[in-house]
Computed example of a mutant assay.
Amino acid sequence: MNILIVDDSKAMRGIVMRAVKAAGLAEATYLEAGTGVEALASIRGAEPDLVLTDWNMPEMSGFELIKAVRAEGRQVKIGLVTSESDPTLRAQAMEAGAAFVISKPFTPDAVRAALQPVIS
């Protein structure tokens, strides 16, 4: 399984990666992107199986990334890892094609619970 982690903070990409590995995906291949624009290029080229993206990033937000990926007809599973807690924004993300939303701060158990239905 190829997993793309997208966040403008390198430290946060590492934290998300460790949590995903702890959730049972230690053997996956991991790719990283620092912006939504980089992520979109990576999705077009590497075609990952799963994308975990931050919501608030420069150039292109995680929400805009989801909309762009879906507009291209790509069916890659995408989840948001975000500090956004507004239920309306979360509902919009799901309507746009997010498979899950994980709230920051998160625990490995929360990541595991969000990923289980997606990777089963």
Rank of each mutant, 00 (worst) to 15 (best):
N56Q: 15
Y30A: 04
V51A: 04
I78A: 00
I119N: 07
L40E: 01
S103W: 05
A19F: 05
A96R: 09
G45Q: 13
R18P: 02
D54T: 06
P58A: 09
K77T: 13
M60F: 05
R18T: 15
P117H: 11
L80E: 02
I5H: 02
E95C: 00
E27K: 11
G24R: 02
G14C: 07
M57C: 08
A98I: 08
A11T: 12
E32N: 07
D8K: 00
G24E: 01
M57D: 05
I102V: 15
D8F: 04
V69M: 04
K77N: 13
V111T: 07
N2P: 15
T29V: 14
R90F: 02
A41K: 14
T107M: 09
G79W: 02
E72M: 12
E64R: 07
E32H: 05
V76Q: 02
G34E: 15
A113L: 14
S103Y: 06
V69R: 05
I5L: 00
Q75C: 10
R112M: 08
A11K: 11
F100I: 11
E95I: 07
E72V: 08
E64Y: 00
D86M: 05
A113V: 14
S61D: 01
T35R: 00
G73W: 06
S9K: 07
I5E: 01
T29L: 11
E84Y: 06
L80C: 06
L25W: 01
M1K: 10
A91N: 09
G14E: 09
P58D: 10
V111R: 04
A28Q: 01
A93I: 07
M57N: 06
S85P: 01
Y30S: 05
M17S: 12
T29G: 12
E32V: 02
I102S: 08
S85D: 15
G79T: 08
I102E: 04
E59F: 12
L52H: 02
R74M: 15
F63M: 15
D86T: 05
T53N: 03
G24S: 03
N56I: 12
I43T: 09
K21A: 15
E84R: 08
T29E: 15
V6Y: 00
V81S: 08
A46E: 14
M17Q: 13
K67W: 01
R112I: 04
I43R: 08
A110K: 12
E64K: 07
L50V: 04
R13H: 07
A93C: 06
V20L: 02
A110M: 13
N2H: 14
A110R: 13
V16A: 10
L31Q: 13
R90T: 11
